[in-house]
Simulated assay, not measured.
Amino acid sequence: MSENLLTLAGVHTHIGAYHILHGVDLAVPRGQLTMLLGRNGAGKTTTLRTIMGLWRASQGRIAFAGQDITQAATPRIAGLGIAYVPENMGIFADLTVKENMLLAARGARHARQMDDQRLQWIFSLFPAVEKFWNHPAGKLSGGQKQMLAVARAIVEPRELLIVDEPSKGLAPAIINNMIEAFARLKASGVTILLVEQNINFAKRLGDTVAVMDNGVVVHAGSMRALAEDEALQHELLGLAL
């Protein structure tokens, strides 16, 4: 069994008067791609934001690489080697693709100071980033913005990449490109946690899976086992994969 890079134990999150997470238990094995599935409103995005410290856990424990990060500030969490791509991608529309990348490269003050070898690797994953290097990010298509968002998250080496619905609203051809890119990222040793609604995306990429409902994880196991059990799919998700 793989060592768990990230674990959540009994995590509760309140947002104002609302109790969103009701004791989430989640394990993300090192070097694997974990899918976080569930119906709309199940608590998936809240779980990601709680991991990143954007919303604070009111109870429970979050550990990353053996360190307790439950009450850590977001900058410290990011500094430990966790990158987060939110559902809205967080692109700076008025800046160029290059400027968006430079902002994320904390060790560089100028584009020429960015790690050229790493940039070339990123360009091989996401050719659109290189093609539109000097274009305003706001002019990119939805798929190109998603590629930029992921590229920006990995402009520096990361141990864990967390991405919220990377395939949302994308054309099938772009989704296939994203699947290939995530597969290569995983092969490079990056641990990945993905929230996803596209079931084909989940089936093709996932090693392990956790399914959420009403603010708790109601199922955890191998993605392959879930993909092969149609009755369990209906029970957990209300649909067949």
Score class of each variant (00 low, 15 high):
150 V>N: 03
5 L>R: 01
117 Q>C: 10
116 D>G: 04
237 L>E: 11
195 V>A: 00
188 S>A: 15
16 G>W: 05
114 M>F: 05
15 I>D: 02
224 R>T: 10
98 K>G: 08
32 Q>K: 13
113 Q>L: 04
70 T>G: 01
139 K>S: 13
184 R>L: 14
85 V>S: 05
139 K>N: 12
10 G>L: 01
132 F>Y: 15
3 E>Y: 12
35 M>D: 07
239 L>K: 14
13 T>E: 08
65 A>G: 00
239 L>H: 12
190 V>E: 03
154 I>Q: 06
205 L>M: 01
224 R>M: 09
63 A>N: 10
153 A>Q: 04
193 L>T: 09
9 A>E: 13
143 G>I: 08
51 I>S: 08
139 K>A: 15
30 R>Q: 14
132 F>D: 04
186 K>D: 02
1 M>W: 08
202 A>Y: 07
129 V>F: 12
100 N>Q: 09
211 V>M: 11
17 A>R: 15
127 P>G: 12
241 L>M: 15
165 E>K: 02
60 G>L: 05
33 L>Y: 00
155 V>A: 07
237 L>N: 14
5 L>I: 08
138 G>Y: 13
130 E>G: 08
43 G>T: 11
57 A>W: 09
90 G>M: 09
236 L>W: 07
14 H>P: 00
121 W>H: 11
52 M>C: 05
133 W>M: 01
170 L>R: 10
211 V>I: 10
96 T>W: 10
216 V>W: 02
36 L>Q: 06
157 P>D: 06
63 A>G: 05
240 A>L: 09
60 G>I: 03
140 L>M: 11
138 G>C: 11
20 I>Y: 13
168 K>A: 15
67 Q>F: 02
67 Q>R: 14
42 A>L: 10
115 D>N: 12
101 M>W: 12
53 G>Q: 07
124 S>M: 05
81 G>N: 00
49 R>N: 12
230 E>P: 10
225 A>R: 13
155 V>T: 04
33 L>D: 00
135 H>L: 12
117 Q>Y: 11
129 V>G: 02
147 M>Q: 15
1 M>R: 08
150 V>R: 00
172 P>F: 13
111 A>D: 10
193 L>P: 06
78 A>R: 07
4 N>P: 07
225 A>I: 03
166 P>Q: 09
106 R>L: 13
38 G>Y: 06
40 N>M: 13
211 V>Q: 08
226 L>Y: 05
114 M>Y: 03
120 Q>L: 15
142 G>W: 12
4 N>A: 13
